[in-house]
Computed example of a mutant assay.
Amino acid sequence: MADENGKQTEMESRPWHQTVTLLLVSLRLAALVATSTAAGLMAFNKETKTVTVAVVGTNPILQSFTAAFQQTPAFVYFVLANAIASLYNLLVMLLRPCLKNRGRQVLVHLLDMVVFALVVTGAAAAASMAELGKNGNKYARWNPICDRFEAFCIRGGVALVAAFIGAVLLLLMNALSVVGLTCKNVTSNNN
């Protein structure tokens, strides 16, 4: 309700602010869970297969092959990007009482955008390598590996889904943060 000058009262803007704050905290917590799940799944993603490469007489010659995230720079970047995003979101949640100042909230919003970009680029890099692992590249004569390392590819796919969910949550958090900062600015200018 507005007073005789058309200004909103403090009581009207308060519930909106509390709702936005609650949504931001919920989105940050969900993004923390998604990015930490993505980082953890990929960081512990390793599969070893032992195959017979030759038979000499009656003795098979065995060779072990291992697929691990450390063997691909895109997967290493993916793990680091999601781990940084998880740590950042955890720190912001823990330091939330210290971030009431408008200038600090703007800084957090800008850092949120950087973290969003980090997660999206990490997920995109990993997705391109996952596609190569699944389908290969017939022009470069690179064979797919997911037919041999199925568990590795499934865990990597789940990690990618978690990372993209985290990216969408971070994007929503950024959009809601802009709305919250804009509404604060409008209500403070009206008073």
Rank of each mutant, 00 (worst) to 15 (best):
T19S: 05
A162W: 04
V161D: 00
T48F: 10
A163N: 04
M173V: 03
A140P: 02
L27G: 06
V161Q: 00
N191F: 06
F149S: 06
G156Y: 04
N82T: 00
M42F: 04
K138V: 03
F116M: 13
I145L: 11
R155F: 12
V51H: 02
N191A: 11
T58H: 08
V186I: 15
N5I: 01
A74Q: 14
L29T: 11
N185G: 10
S64D: 10
T52A: 08
F44G: 14
P73Y: 02
R96I: 15
M113E: 13
A162I: 09
P144F: 07
C146E: 05
W142I: 12
A67I: 06
L181I: 15
A124I: 06
L94S: 06
Q63P: 00
G6K: 06
I84D: 13
A38V: 03
G6H: 05
L111E: 02
H17D: 08
Q18L: 09
V56L: 13
S177C: 07
V108I: 15
A67S: 07
G122H: 11
A39P: 06
R102T: 12
L118E: 14
A43N: 06
A159G: 10
G136K: 13
A163I: 05
T52P: 02
V51K: 12
L27D: 05
P97E: 12
G40Y: 10
L170S: 13
M173P: 01
V115F: 07
A125I: 02
E150H: 10
A74R: 05
R28M: 08
F65P: 04
F44P: 01
R102L: 11
M42E: 15
K49L: 03
N89A: 11
R155Q: 14
T52G: 02
K134Y: 08
Q71G: 10
F75I: 02
T50C: 04
T72A: 07
V53Y: 02
